[in-house]
Design a protein around this nucleic acid. Structure first.
Length: 214
DNA sequence: ATCCCGAGGG
DNA sequence: CCCTCTGGAT
C-alpha cells in the first residue's frame, strides 16, 4: 500500500471536536447490547428521533431476544410502522433474535464477523455496536460520516470501505474511539447535507468546502 | 424532490 | 454494479 497523504490539520480538527464535546454520545436510546443492536438495525434510512419514538414502545414490551420472539413479526411491525423500511426491519429483528438464541446463547457477540452473520446487520451496524458497546474503535461510516469525511477532506474515499480505512489511517490514535460520533454529530447539526452551516462551523478554517462551493 | 446513524438480493 | 424497501421531515 502506498503511504497515505496526511491531512495536515487533522490533529487540530479533532482537538476542537474534543474541546467542544469531550464524550460524544450517539442519540439512539438503548439500555443493553441487544436494544442497541436493534435500534441501530432499525435506523437505516430513518432519523434517530423517529427510531426512538418507535423503540420506546417496542422495548417497553420486548427488550430481550426471547421477548422479541414472543411478539412475532406482526407484533414488532405494529410498533415500528412509522419507521422507513418497516417490513424488512420487522422480519430482521425477529430473525436476528432467533439467531442470537440459536448461535450465541442469547448474547450479542463482540466480533464483526459474528455480528454480520445476524440478519439485517451489515458492516455499518456491526461497527456501531463494536464501537459503542464493546469500546472497540471501529469506524462506522454512515451517510453523515461519508459526507463529512469527503467534504472536509479529512478522510476522502469513493465508497464506505475506503472512507473507513482512511479514518483508521488518518485520525490520530487518541481520537479513534470517538471519531465516529464527532463526525456524525458534526454532519447532523453543522455539516448538513442540504444547507451546511459553514458560518457556525468549528473547523471552518481547516475546510475548503465553502470557498469551493460559492 | 431529497434526505435520514443501510442491508440484501439480483 | 444496480435495484428495492419505506415513512416522515424539510
Amino acid at each position: 500500500m502506498a503511504a497515505q497523504l496526511p491531512y495536515p490539520e487533522i490533529a487540530q480538527i479533532f482537538a476542537r471536536f474534543r474541546a467542544a464535546e469531550p464524550e460524544p454520545k450517539g442519540e439512539l436510546e438503548h439500555s443493553s447490547a441487544f436494544t442497541l443492536l436493534v435500534a441501530v438495525a432499525l435506523s437505516a434510512q430513518a432519523t434517530d428521533k423517529g427510531v426512538n419514538l418507535a423503540t420506546r414502545k417496542l422495548f417497553a414490551v420486548a427488550d430481550t431476544p426471547e421477548r422479541m420472539l414472543a411478539l412475532g413479526v406482526e407484533g414488532v411491525t405494529e410498533h415500528i410502522r412509522t419507521i422507513g423500511l418497516f417490513r424488512n426491519k420487522a422480519k430482521n429483528v425477529i430473525a436476528l433474535s432467533q439467531r442470537l438464541i440459536d448461535a450465541f446463547g442469547g448474547e450479542v457477540p463482540a466480533s464483526r464477523a459474528a455480528l454480520q452473520s445476524l440478519p439485517g446487520v451489515g458492516r455499518k451496524t456491526a461497527n456501531v455496536v463494536l464501537n459503542m458497546w464493546f469500546r472497540i474503535p471501529a469506524q462506522a461510516v454512515d451517510t453523515h460520516v461519508f459526507r463529512v469525511a469527503n467534504r472536509t477532506g479529512i478522510a476522502p474515499g469513493r465508497d464506505v470501505i475506503a472512507v473507513e480505512r482512511a479514518i483508521e489511517d488518518q485520525v490520530p490514535a487518541p481520537y479513534q474511539q470517538h471519531a465516529h460520533h464527532w463526525l456524525i454529530l458534526h454532519g447532523r447539526y453543522v455539516c448538513k447535507a442540504r444547507k451546511p452551516a459553514c458560518a457556525a462551523c468549528l473547523i471552518r478554517e481547516y475546510c475548503r468546502y465553502e470557498e469551493k462551493n460559492l
